[in-house]
Design a protein around this nucleic acid. Structure first.
Lengths: 156, 156
DNA sequence: CGCAGATAGTTCAAGTCGAGAACTATTCAG
DNA sequence: CTGAATAGTTCTCGACTTGAACTATCTGCG
């Protein structure tokens, strides 16, 4: 860089700046590694929750992920059209849809999980096992100071 | 991997997830602390670079911050309308604008810097001095693995 | 039983925002 | 002097969200 003006020069020493920068970069990169599967991190989040508890309604999911109902529609449409999730009629309440993973959905979820793990490894490849643990501990402490533990705000 | 773990537990142990979540939260909170000044983090970034080197052109700034020229226009408009930055004719090249902080801009930049420092303190209040250094070191290592050091992607 | 109000899901229209193409003014090379 | 390149600006397109309205159900109370 000819002029020697580097944006990160001063703020490189700031935890907040680094966090925000790294967070955004890693989120973007993670989304890219997920792309071959045809899903993005939000779809992954949905698969994850449906996998944990089958039969939930869209709004229950939306609440867990802090996604407004009208947005859930399109998101569920996506994963349903890919044959990953089924909307079943709930006999107890026919207004609501009971969401279930299809076999294909479960398989893809497992793949996505593997990809996530792989990316995690890549991200931490410059760290020793001990450093990684330290980092996790420190990040958890920050999370405590930063605000009440909620789900990922990037969903909303 | 244990069975029956819940979502937070699985991803709470992920550096990538935590980074992304904390990064987004801290960026949002920082933007909120800046709001009383009438600027957002991008304006702050502009003030910061203009402060470091007066007289640069919009495109030089845009290059440093990875902001396309067409976007710089609106951004500079913002800070100019608030009387923080001046677009001066550059006698050497009358196509380009030489950007300078106004006294008001300098004052506001100092305030913003103070706010940023304050927020940084708040963010790290759960950490000891030593832990904070550790964290910075670890984050820098991650940044190295994560990709070539560029400026903050949130600008673009 | 039957009506009123709440609730799940959907659709739709409006608002926001960024990116890239096209345009003007100016500079520079030959 | 002329043509290509460059700084800045404008404008339009497309992507993305959201909140309000609409349908269909459900639930409670008289």
């Amino acid at each position: 860089m000819a002029e020697g003006v580097d944006a990160g020069e001063v703020l490189g020493g700031s935890v907040g700046f680094l966090l925000s920068k790294l967070g955004m970069t890693s989120a973007t990169q993670f989304a890219e590694t997920l792309e071959p599967l045809g899903i993005d991190p939000r779809h992954f989040g949905i698969l994850r929750i449906v996998e944990m508890a089958s039969g939930q309604s869209q709004q229950q999911l939306g609440e867990a992920l802090h996604i407004p109902p009208s947005r859930m529609v399109a998101l569920i449409d996506d994963v349903e059209q890919r044959g990953l999730v089924e909307r079943r009629r709930n006999p107890k309440d026919r207004r609501a849809h009971a969401l279930h993973l299809t076999p294909k959905g479960r398989k893809l979820y497992d793949q996505a999980l593997a990809i996530a793990t792989e990316y995690e490894e890549h991200l931490c490849e410059g760290l020793s096992e001990r450093e990684r643990d330290q980092l996790l501990t420190l990040l958890h402490k920050l999370a405590a100071a930063c605000g009440p533990a909620g789900s990922h705000p990037g969903m909303a």
